[in-house]
Design a protein around this nucleic acid. Structure first.
Lengths: 218, 218, 218, 218
DNA sequence: AATGAATGAGTTTTCATTCAT
DNA sequence: TATGAATGAAAACTCATTCAT
């Protein structure tokens, strides 16, 4: 088992100098970070409390139990990312290549590398079988919309003659799966970093790979 | 009496008909499946025992403790996949596109969809921060060799004039990351299935995507 | 947010319309009702507060702690019922049967069905071993006087030739025990209600039973 | 709060010298005694364990949680007392007075003074509103049969001309209520004892009281 | 006087591990 | 070897009580 760790409290000022309205969010922030890093079961309530700068009892003032914290963490984190897809796609007139880039960029900004919620997909993936509701929710509100978005982009590109795709469904799935998996993966294995590859570079290259492939067209 | 969870034993034949030499492997099989599905902390020793068709005490005849089972599960599962890369690459004379396909096929067969160990990457990903040794081991014996393999394939293709790649390192990383992530992801979210996409289809499309991209070259 | 139990406040008017002198009594009323229904340990201070229309902190303005509330509830409820027995008995000249009826009626009005404190005997019975003082107090100020009262009534009836009793002590005990137990019981099991028996009916029949028995005297 | 107490373990021999089959019953015995004395909420799991001569963890080997112990305690204790009433009544030819005595004796032996389960009615009464199932179960399997039994006895006596009763239902209720309450009460307030009244004496007098009343029939 | 968020001491519950058989 | 009842250390959870406002 990994050795015991000292958790730096997120907030360390005297308790009463901190606004009480912040308490729930402070707890969720602490919980999210620990759940993503260690998993739900391996994260102790006392760890969350320490990181949030409160005592364990306080968690139960705001949340029914540990599981309720998990639910809240996920629900709050997953503000629908693609709900305005139609709006964007409806009036779009530019190149399909650019549209795909916008999509990837959007996704990246939402759940990608830097954002606070970038770990949520990993968390959900790990707990999917223990908490199926989370997985269902993620599927419904994130993955399926994303899949549809990609498909629409591909169809747009095909109509405009820019793209050439054998099977739209499978290709959309391959793109989604690859990118989503990569983001998820990035949280754990940082081969890139080990090889000095910067995040933005990766995103661009990913876009490039999908668009051009690696084949040399003389 | 306190109730317990239901768990289908992996082996259900009468105990005395099973060879006692199989015991350790049966335990590892049961443990792997449960660890992958539920995570290490959420998997109870009694569950492993039940699934392996033994009692909790027996686990401790073969393994020091629960963590030792995890270690053994991972170590046994990760028989190096790429150690013969040099051999294959050394004498290869064919097309780079085919070589890439061989690589993907090989990986797929090793840790992909059907194989018993296909869940190990997910397991390691989930427990990476709790058991850094596992992550290190995986990195060293799987991911880095895979990364190098891809790089070699790309360089081979570039030398032969087949491939056209801006940045070999980043591209290799993008390919690895995408494919690895997709495999990992596949364990949890089955959008593909939901859309009726078969596994082989996905693998082929993935290869195609990397090779050709989606751009229409008149 | 952690959910809480529903509890209808005893007082629901705006706080500022209620006199602050009533506060302590409102707290006791709320506590009595909950203690009787749920028991001391199972009743939460926050429940009492909600029912009394105040916040938990307020309880501690008036009472040292939860136990002090119990003490006060019981002490206030048990205004001696029989302290004027001597007075009544001293000058009584009528029939013993009627005197017994008066006694039963008196008891009934004091701790019987309708009164607010009718649950106190049950409460004391339940908490007797946790709070022996309560039991002692009840014994001393209620049961023993009642026992003596009954005995005096019986002796009065015997002297007047109205009653025929083998053993005054035991009979007095049987009467007390039966009636007290019935009242206590009535709080929980309402077989009577289930069979459409009204409270007054029960009290009269009880008196009749004691006086005449069920034997047919041609 | 009542001071801390030392619980004498029911069994004190070395654990392995005691039969493991006894464990569940030992736990129930300990729990019953404590629940009756202190109430459910005021009884600590650790107390039950100590009294049963095991550690708290052991309780959870046999029972899901504290509440399950309560359920089991009650269910096991309440073996139907009156289910053979019809048999007895069907062929009975003797005096109704005697039949009533048999009934009272039977009840007394089952849940009365000495028996191990004599505290169960009190326990159920105290926890009725916290655990309505218990109350319902008691009502259905004990009180209602008892009520019907008494009614049948009364009707038998009326038919035979032995009894003279104004209202059978109400009288039956009065008898049940009085006797049941008295038994229940006896667990807490021992006025009788304080006055040197023996248990058997009380039971007989109770029977006498019901049958003859206290009125002097010259 | 009144508040109610936060506490922390205590309780319930879990479960990896042991050990007599 | 194998067992599985029992353990005990640790975790989750409860809630009477406090105290800054």
């Amino acid at each position: 088992m990994a050795e015991e760790f000292e958790e730096t409290p997120v907030k360390s000022g005297p308790r009463w100098q901190r606004k009480k309205e912040d308490r729930p969010q402070e707890i969720l922030d602490a919980a999210l970070e620990l759940f993503v890093k260690q998993g739900f079961a391996a994260t102790k309530v006392s760890q969350i409390a320490r990181k949030a700068g409160v005592t364990p009892g306080t968690l139960y003032v705001y949340y029914k139990n540990k599981e309720a914290i998990l639910q809240e963490v996920v629900m709050k984190a997953l503000r629908p990312v693609f709900y305005d897809a139609d709006k964007i796609l409806g009036k779009y007139k530019g190149s399909a290549v650019d549209l795909l880039f916008i999509l990837i960029e959007k996704w990246w900004d939402a759940v990608g590398g830097e954002s606070k919620i970038s770990g949520v997909p990993k968390l959900i993936s790990a707990e999917a079988s223990n908490f199926p509701q989370l997985s269902d929710f993620y599927m419904k509100s994130i993955l399926t919309p994303a899949f549809n978005y990609i498909r629409l982009v591909l169809e747009y590109g095909i109509r405009s003659g820019e793209f050439m795709v054998k099977n739209v469904e499978v290709t959309a799935y391959a793109i989604l799966s690859a990118f989503h998996g990569a983001v998820l993966d990035a949280h754990t294995f940082k081969i890139g970093e080990a090889n000095g590859i910067r995040v933005g570079e990766f995103r661009d290259m990913f876009h490039d790979l999908i668009v051009h492939g690696i084949l040399n067209k003389k």
